[in-house]
Design a protein around this nucleic acid. Structure first.
Lengths: 341, 341
DNA sequence: TTGAAAGCGCTAACAT
DNA sequence: ATGTTAGCGCTTTCAA
C-alpha cells in the first residue's frame, strides 16, 4: 500500500490537515513544523495521490490532445510530431501532463472528447485543427471546457485558436514562383473541408489572379496529406495538354510524393517543374533537389497553443486568435535559373 | 456542476449503488431497472467521474509513456512517431488512454517516473529504451509498477521488454554489403551506452570478423541520432588514408546526414560508398538514391509493448522478452553493380 | 498555528 | 435484486 498523508502525519506527530497545508505551502504554518513534515515526506518517499487530489480540487493538471482521425493513418506525421514537441515542452515547464486520446473515425473522436470533457480527466483540451461544421467545438463550448484549436474554425469566429496566416503564406509561396518567372502554376491541395486547405487555396488563387495569370481547374488537385496522394496527383495533372510548370503543394510529405512522381515521369526539378510546399520539415533539405518550403513555426504553434489553454484554465485574459509568423525558406526546387552543379 | 451518480439515482428512483452496478454491468440487476437507469444517464449526459472511480478502484485506465530526454531534441523522430502510433492503436482498442510525460534530462526523467509511479496516475508505464545502469528500472521494480521496456536492459536479463534482434539485424545488414563485394566496411554508430547501439555494433563486428575482413577503429564513429551527427561523421571518416567504401549506419535520420555529407564531399552513392541503415522510415525511399534500410517493425514494436503492459496489469502471464522480426529492404544505396539510369 | 470533521464521487461489503 | 454504510486520500471550513 502506498504511503498516504496519514502515514506522514502520524510519523511527524501532526494531523493530516497540517501535512496537507505543508504541501500546499499554506502561509500560516510554522517553519518548524513545515520542515519536520517535509523531512518525513522525504523519508517515506511520499507523493500525493493525484486521484484524491483531483477529486476534491476538480483539477487534474493534465491537458488532453485529441488526435485527428487521420493521424492514425500516418498523416501529418513529422509536422505533427514537431507540434507535440512544442506542446510537451510548454506543458512540462508548467508542471502539466499530456493525455493523448484518439478515435478511429469522426464518431469515435466525438465520443472521446465527450468522455474527456465530462469525466473530469483533463483541465483543458487541444484540438488539432478543425473541419467544417465541427460538432466537437459545439460540444466543448456547451461543456465550458477550456480548449484551443490549432488551426481555425470555419463555423465560429471567436474560438480560441492558434494558427498561421495561411492565406498570406500561400500567397507568398505563389508570389515567389511568379517572381521566378513562372506563369503556369498549379496547386496540389489537401482535404477541401479543412480550413487550412481552404486558406492556402485562397492565397494561391489571390496571387494568381493579381498577377493576371491563368487559373485552370485541371491544375488544381485535391488529395490527402499523404505521400501517395502527391504521387498520384502527378499522373493526372501532368497528363494534360498544357501541364503547369510550377506547383504549390499543401504539405511537405505530399511534396515528397510529387517529387517522386515527377522524377519517374522524367521531369527535372526545378528546370521542368518548380515546386514550393509547406511546413518545412527537416527532410525538405535532404531531397534531390532540396525543397523550398514555408516554415510555419510548427514548434511555436504547439508551444503557443499549450500556453493559451493554460492561461484559459487560470482564467487569464487571452487573445482569441494568435497568428504564428511564417517564412519562406527558399531552396533549389523553386529556382528557375539554376546551373547544373 | 457536473452530473453525478446521485443525480442519476434520484431521477431514476434508485440508490446510487444501483446506478454504480448498472455501470459495472453487475449480473444481479433487473433488466428493467438497468434500462431505466441507462435512459436517465443518457438523458442527463452522465459520465462517471474518473477521479472518483480511480480513487476507489486504484486503477486509472491510463498508460504512461516516458520520453527519453533526447526525444525533446528531435531525435528518433519518425521512428518514434511510428512507435507511438502503434502504442495508441492498441491502447485505444483496449479503452486505455496515453499519458505522455517528459523530462529535459536524466534527473528530471527519473523524477517524472517517480511521480507517475507513486501518485497513482497510471496503471503501467512504457519506457522508450534503456541505457546502462538505468535507475528508472530499479525504481519501478521496487514500486511494483508494471512496465515494459522498448529495447533491452543492460543490467537485468528478466525485464519485460519488446525488442528487435539487433545483433542479427546488423549482422544481416553487414552481410548484405559483403555479398555486394564490399571489403572495407565502416560503422556510423549511436550513443555507446544504449543497448541498441551496442547490439548493432556487435552484429556488425561479427559479420566483419566472420568474413575475415579488416576492422579498423577509424572506420567506426560514435554519434547521436541526429542528422548533423551523420553529416559530421563523414568529414572524419572519409579523410583517412584508406576510407571505407561502405557504411552501416545506426539510424535512417543519421543516414540522411551521411548522404548529405558524402554528396558534398563528391562521393557517389552507391558507386563510391554504399550505405545501409536501420528503421526503414518512409522517407528512405525518397532520397537520392533511395536508402537500403532494415525494417524493424516499428509500429509492431509499439503495438506489442502496449499489449504487454496491459497483460501485466491484468496479471496475465507474459513472455518476458518479445522479439519483433526485422527484414532488410534493399534499395539502390547499397547495390554495387548499378547502371546509371 | 493547528486539529477535527465533513465531503468530493464513486465502489464494495453487508444487509435485507 | 436493491439499499445502507463505510471509506478511498485528500482539502477545507470551522473551532480552538
Amino acid at each position: 500500500m502506498a504511503v498516504t498523508i496519514k502515514d506522514v502525519a502520524k510519523l511527524a506527530g501532526v494531523s493530516p490537515s497540517t501535512v496537507s497545508r505543508v504541501i500546499a505551502n499554506h502561509p500560516r504554518i510554522s517553519v518548524e513544523t513545515s520542515n519536520r513534515v517535509r523531512e518525513v515526506m522525504e523519508e517515506l518517499g511520499y507523493h500525493p495521490n493525484m486521484m484524491a487530489k483531483s477529486l476534491v480540487s476538480k483539477t487534474t493538471r493534465t491537458i488532453g490532445v485529441v488526435l485527428p482521425r487521420p493521424a492514425e493513418e500516418l498523416l501529418l506525421n513529422f509536422f505533427f510530431y514537431e507540434l507535440i514537441r512544442g506542446v510537451l515542452a510548454q506543458l512540462t515547464r508548467a508542471g502539466y501532463d499530456l493525455l493523448m486520446a484518439g478515435g478511429s473515425n469522426e464518431q469515435e473522436e466525438l465520443e472521446t472528447v465527450t468522455r474527456l470533457a465530462r469525466s473530469g480527466r483533463v483541465d483543458g483540451l487541444l484540438l488539432l485543427y478543425s473541419r467544417a461544421s465541427d460538432p466537437v467545438i459545439h460540444l466543448l463550448r456547451k461543456e465550458k471546457m477550456p480548449f484551443v484549436l490549432l488551426g481555425r474554425s470555419l463555423d465560429y469566429e471567436d474560438v480560441p485558436s492558434v494558427d498561421n496566416d495561411n492565406v498570406q503564406a500561400a500567397y507568398d509561396a505563389t508570389k515567389h514562383l511568379i517572381a521566378q518567372g513562372q506563369r503556369r502554376i498549379g496547386f496540389v491541395s489537401g482535404p477541401a473541408k479543412l480550413a487550412m486547405t481552404q486558406d492556402r487555396m485562397a492565397g494561391y488563387t489571390k496571387a494568381i489572379t493579381e498577377a493576371g495569370l491563368p487559373f485552370k481547374d485541371g491544375w488544381v488537385v485535391e488529395g490527402e496529406f499523404l505521400l501517395e496522394s502527391g504521387y498520384r496527383a502527378m499522373a493526372s495533372i501532368m497528363s494534360q495538354p498544357e501541364p503547369p510548370t510550377a506547383l504549390v503543394i499543401i504539405d511537405d510529405v505530399v511534396a515528397f510524393g510529387v517529387l517522386k512522381g515527377l522524377t519517374e515521369l522524367g521531369y527535372r526539378i526545378p528546370q521542368d517543374v518548380a515546386i514550393v510546399s509547406f511546413n518545412n520539415i527537416a527532410l525538405t533539405e535532404l531531397t534531390m533537389p532540396p525543397i523550398t518550403s514555408v516554415d510555419v513555426g510548427t514548434y511555436q504553434l504547439g508551444y503557443t497553443a499549450s500556453q493559451m489553454v493554460l492561461r484559459m484554465i487560470q482564467q487569464v485574459e487571452i487573445t482569441n486568435r494568435q497568428i504564428i509568423p511564417h517564412r519562406l525558406v527558399v531552396r533549389e526546387s523553386s529556382l528557375r535559373t539554376l546551373s547544373l552543379t
